[in-house]
């Protein structure tokens, strides 16, 4: 029993080395002073971090990524919060179907969705690429917004809402004054999770590039396929720090239980 436990803990340790080792290696190589990625690096330098800020493509696409993720997030919230509320609060015919509809964007392969959006939104509907990018990101963020908020509403006792209404509050007033404050941390967490999902997205964005329009992950993808200097390693480190920070906030807001639920 004791030996079995030790073997299992060693096994788990190896699994986590496999998971995190490569990320640690990138972090170390990002400080390479030379022009070629090496491990271990031949010295310590921040030149590739400086390089990020000197290559305008990275700065431009970073800006696009942030704007698209934030605007898309806002749109997804406007569409998703009422829907999540309706789906959690009321039981009505066709609720399961609608639930499935709202969660379906995660089920459709991203690359298929990206291609379809390119073909119809850009080519057939004639929307500008930027708009296509924004819409595509909104579509993929919706399920995350709805799922996180619904799980937060699942813990909300709707009798409280009825109590407010019995005291004379209208529906909208009740929603703003009673429901919303109680699921605030759920909404915040939903925003952050959806943001990461959109910010890291490749499958949609890869089809939505055009003159002056591209996101950071796509820019990184193109760069890696052509150059092999440590710039991408440096960007990776910055992205990982950002991810860790957001993850920390998500944990504070609602713990990690959401992730283990299926």
């Amino acid at each position: 029993m004791k030996e079995g436990n030790r073997a299992l803990s060693l096994y788990t340790l190896l699994v986590f080395i496999f998971l995190l080792g490569p990320l640690a290696i990138i972090s170390v190589t990002s400080f390479e002073p030379g022009t070629i990625l090496k491990f271990p690096p031949e010295g310590f330098s921040l030149r590739w971090y400086k390089n990020i800020f000197e290559v305008s493509m990275f700065m431009e696409t970073f800006k696009t990524s942030v704007i698209v993720s934030m605007l898309g997030n806002l749109l997804a919230l406007l569409l998703g919060v009422p829907a999540a509320y309706a789906l959690s609060r009321f039981s009505f015919r066709g609720r399961d179907t609608l639930n499935a509809l709202f969660l379906s964007p995660v089920l459709i392969p991203g690359i298929v969705l990206g291609f379809t959006l390119l073909r119809y939104l850009i080519v057939v509907y004639g929307l500008p690429i930027y708009a296509g990018l924004l819409i595509g990101h909104t579509v993929i963020m919706l399920p995350f917004i709805i799922r996180v908020i619904a799980s937060s509403l699942a813990n909300f006792d709707f009798a409280v809402e009825e109590a407010a209404q019995s005291l004379g509050a209208g529906r909208l007033y009740t929603f703003y004054k009673i429901v919303l404050p109680n699921i605030r941390s759920g909404i915040m967490a939903a925003i952050l999770i959806a943001f990461l999902e959109s910010f890291n997205n490749v499958d949609i964005s890869v089809f939505m590039t055009g003159p002056g329009v591209s996101t950071l992950p796509i820019q990184m993808l193109t760069y890696v396929q052509n150059y092999f200097d440590p710039t991408i390693a440096a960007i990776s480190v910055i992205l990982m720090v950002l991810t860790a920070a957001l993850m920390f906030i998500i944990e504070r807001l609602m713990g990690f239980a959401y992730f283990t639920k299926r």
Partner: peptide, 17 residues
């Protein structure tokens, strides 16, 4: 959870190294 939230570009890139 951390790797799960980290960009797939970053994660695949690490294996290129």
């Amino acid at each position: 959870i951390f790797p799960l939230l980290t960009s797939p570009v970053v994660r695949s890139f690490s294996w290129m190294i």
